[in-house]
Design a protein around this nucleic acid. Structure first.
Length: 423
RNA sequence: GGAGAGGUGACCGAGAGGCCGAAGGUGAUCGCCUGCUAAGCGAUUGAGUGCUCAAAAAGUGCUCCGAGGGUUCGAAUCCCUCCCUCUCCGCCA
């Protein structure tokens, strides 16, 4: 959520920044509602002040044993008037909140302004591009002979869009997650295993709600939702918390499954692991003071980059165009790995600076000693998602016989240096 | 799922219709005292939001005692619904 006061005081600047993301955004309605609301609110507060005075007068009279009837009569009259004004104020406020909640965060000046997703800015390319003396297969073809990625099996259990890992793939997936979780802990993130089900407030704070309710799975009999990302759980660790200034930055990392309805994406990228209703990742979140945010943003990117580099993958780092930013982000940098079999880049990590947008919704604050409490800034990034990492590993390290060399860091988890051996 | 007990400021805890943003304590900050430390003494110490103000400071209004409704001239206090925590029972990995 944006700072209403800022929008009020800098409407032109704010609107310009918002229109970089979506040219259809206008602040006119918001500002009109704001001034209407504040006008009525002023009246409400005057009436309340009067009511409080009258109440005190009644109390005094009663205590002194005087007759309070005339004061009570005055109060009764006041009440009706106040109630009417309050209803009006509530209505304006509700409409104002609707508009305010729909507005995305302001975009960082470094974000390329465009309405075309392809206008991202490529920051750098890293790792090494694998050379093949044969036509590389994609991860589905590679695992078909062994049945270790069993999509028909998953469909039987759950329907389309789910994955079932077996044997070596199960070990590899689990190993990847364990290794990355450990790497995150070694880098100073507190390891967290959170619930996969969260309540409405949590999704509201991290900003999936109210705008993107349709993307999230909801339980039928309880007010609980499956997390679309553990950003939700990690960010909400800070909800209604006031951190001590010296405890910041506070880094947390979770490994979880993530659930997405992917409504409206039927028929798109349906092959293999890359877009399923459930996938795993390690997620990193940092709470910090505003001036620490940009350095920590680079830190998360560097961490994710180190992961893909250690696995011997070819990758690039791109800054997303303004139209492609998530609602809560001021800036997002993606790390994409090259998948030689699918012959395309896939996002394995998305690192976002959310400034105070989530903190304002969730009351995530900090206080330096002697100072007033202020809103934290929140940052998040994947570190990283296995649903794209696993395909990239298989496709990059495949051999002409269909086997796959296991990257060094994972060998201990899988128990061998080469998997997917034929026969 | 059943039965009970609770949810008050950073924390503990009183408060049982009006003078309660809330006693008392702990902690924190500042000062005094002490050779230093401890102890002691005194003072200060919640959040949000509006207005005045160029701004800061200050002043001032409103709101907040788990959440939401209700009763009442008036609710932390009474009633209803919900949420959460704890204890016991049942069920269960």
């Amino acid at each position: 959520m944006l700072d209403l006061r800022y929008l009020r005081n800098h409407p032109v600047k704010a609107e310009k920044s918002l229109q970089a993301r979506d040219p259809k955004i206008s602040l006119d309605k918001l500002l009109a509602l704001d001034s209407a609301w504040r006008g009525v609110l002023q009246r409400v507060e005057e009436l309340r002040a009067e009511r409080n005075d009258a109440g005190a007068a009644i109390a005094r009279a009663k205590k002194a044993g005087d007759d309070a009837n005339s004061a009570i009569k005055r109060m009764t009259k006041l009440k009706a008037d106040l109630q009417k004004q309050e209803e009006q104020a509530d209505e304006f406020k509700a409409r104002l909140d609707d508009v305010l909640l729909s507005l995305p965060n302001l975009a960082d000046p470094a974000v390329p302004v465009s309405q075309d997703k392809d206008d991202f800015e490529e920051l750098r390319v890293g790792g090494k591009l694998a050379n093949f003396s044969f036509e590389p297969k994609d991860h589905v073809e590679l695992t078909e002979p062994t049945g270790t990625l069993d999509f028909p099996g998953a469909a039987k259990l759950s329907g389309s869009g789910f994955a079932l890992y077996r044997g070596e793939m199960a070990l590899l997936e689990w190993g990847l997650l364990s290794w990355m979780f450990k790497e995150a802990a070694a880098a100073g993130y507190e390891p967290i295993l959170p619930p996969f089900l969260v309540n409405h407030d949590s999704l509201y704070t991290s900003s999936q709600f109210p705008k993107f309710m349709g993307d999230v799975y909801k339980l039928a009999d309880d007010d609980l939702y499956l997390i679309p990302t553990s950003e939700v759980t990690l960010v909400n660790l800070g909800r209604e918390v006031t951190f001590q200034g010296e405890d910041l930055p506070k880094r947390v990392a979770a490994v979880t499954a993530n659930f997405r309805r992917e409504a409206g994406t039927y028929g798109k990228d349906t092959r293999g692991l890359v877009r399923t209703h459930q996938f795993n990742k390690v997620e990193l979140v940092t709470f910090c003071q505003p001036e620490q945010a940009s350095g920590l943003f680079e830190e998360i990117i560097a961490h994710a980059e180190k992961i893909v580099k250690s696995l011997g993958l070819y990758y690039r780092v791109v800054r997303l165009a303004s139209c492609d930013l998530a609602q809560q982000a001021t800036m997002t940098v993606d790390i994409e790995v090259w998948c030689p079999g699918m012959k395309r880049w896939w996002e394995v990590s998305s690192v976002s600076n959310c400034s105070d947008y989530q903190a304002r919704r969730g009351g995530i604050r900090y206080k330096v000693s002697g100072g007033k409490s202020q809103l934290c800034h929140t940052l998040n990034g994947s570190g990283v998602a296995t649903s794209r990492l696993l395909p990239a590993i298989l496709e990059t390290h495949q051999q002409s016989d269909g086997s796959v060399i296991v990257p060094k860091p994972l060998q201990a988890f899988v128990g061998r240096e080469r998997i997917n051996l034929p026969g």
